[in-house]
């Protein structure tokens, strides 16, 4: 285990140095991360105005708080692995990764975390500026804030595993664009990025409860904002843990099948 930790530290230093060269690019990519929740925050704020102050239990300040926290959670958990993996398979870079004695998912985790180290100050500044402009209202309880951190950690791991598994589709087809977009659209609606899930019809909420999207993005935000009871929070953490186990299992199976197939194509 110390071996793996050492590898992580070393890999961390290397990727941090290499990403630092692309600071400008990383910052530019972040514009979308801030703009998307900002647009929905403004749209819902306009809706509350036309409804005389409140929509489904959300006032303007509540929407501001929701989309602000959602932006931070989304930023903490997002990955770009689905785009990266297609490139790797198509350009043959994967062969080199497979030659290493280490599972490639480890370097991907480090890559993800180091890029976020670089963007963290920027997203926090953006959040602070938006907080000044849009005056969010928080009702934070201590127990919920304490449960937020494990929920965020689980959300990150589950999302990473799900998206890493989905990225393996590149083994079977080079046209993963359609798959990625289908996933993106489902995530947009079912993880509360268009609107808080409570504003959706009951049927949509039922679908969101059984699919992983909510547990990867909006659940930690709902938790922190005090919109869940302790029982709901505990159930949510249990579902996250369940998805973690399931995603790990599926990842192992798909990876084994995919690598076998990749060898066949390259050989």
């Amino acid at each position: 285990m110390t071996g793996l930790a050492g590898i992580y530290v070393q890999q961390f230093k290397t990727t941090l140095a290499s990403f630092a060269q692309y600071r400008a690019a990383i910052f530019i990519w972040m514009i979308g991360h801030v703009l998307e929740p900002l647009v929905f925050m403004i749209v819902w704020s306009a809706v509350t105005l036309s409804r005389g102050g409140s929509v489904g239990g959300f006032g303007r300040g509540d929407f501001a708080a929701y989309f602000l926290v959602l932006m931070l959670v989304n930023h903490a958990t997002y990955t770009w692995i689905m785009y990266e993996f297609e490139y790797r398979v198509r350009h043959g870079d994967l062969s080199f990764l497979l030659l290493r004695p280490l599972h490639p998912i480890h370097t991907d985790i480090v890559d993800n975390l180091s890029s976020k180290m670089l963007t963290l100050p920027l997203i926090l500044v953006s959040a602070a500026v938006l907080a000044v402009l849009f005056k969010p209202v928080f009702h934070i309880r201590v127990w919920a804030a304490a449960a937020f951190l494990p929920a965020l950690g689980l959300a990150f791991v589950v999302r990473f595993l799900v998206e890493w598994t989905l990225a393996l589709a590149a083994f079977w087809t080079t046209r993963v664009g359609a798959i990625n977009q289908g996933y993106y659209v489902a995530a947009l609606f079912l993880s509360g990025q268009v609107a808080p899930l409570v504003l959706f019809p009951a049927s949509v909420r039922a679908v969101a409860a059984v699919l992983p999207f909510r547990w990867m993005i909006s659940f930690p935000a709902e938790l922190l904002l005090g919109r869940l009871t302790p029982a709901q929070a505990a159930a949510g953490l249990a579902i996250q843990a369940g998805w973690l186990g399931l995603a790990l299992l599926i990842l192992k199976l798909v990876w084994r099948a995919g690598v076998r197939r990749f060898t066949a194509v390259g050989g």
């Binding site: 749209v43 809706v47 036309s50 609606f189 268009v194 609107a195 504003l199 959706f200």
Partner: peptide, 13 residues
């Protein structure tokens, strides 16, 4: 879909 969700709650935006 985004329009549908928003206009389920309001007449004008």
């Amino acid at each position: 879909g985004g329009l549908a969700v928003v206009f389920a709650y309001t007449q004008t935006l």
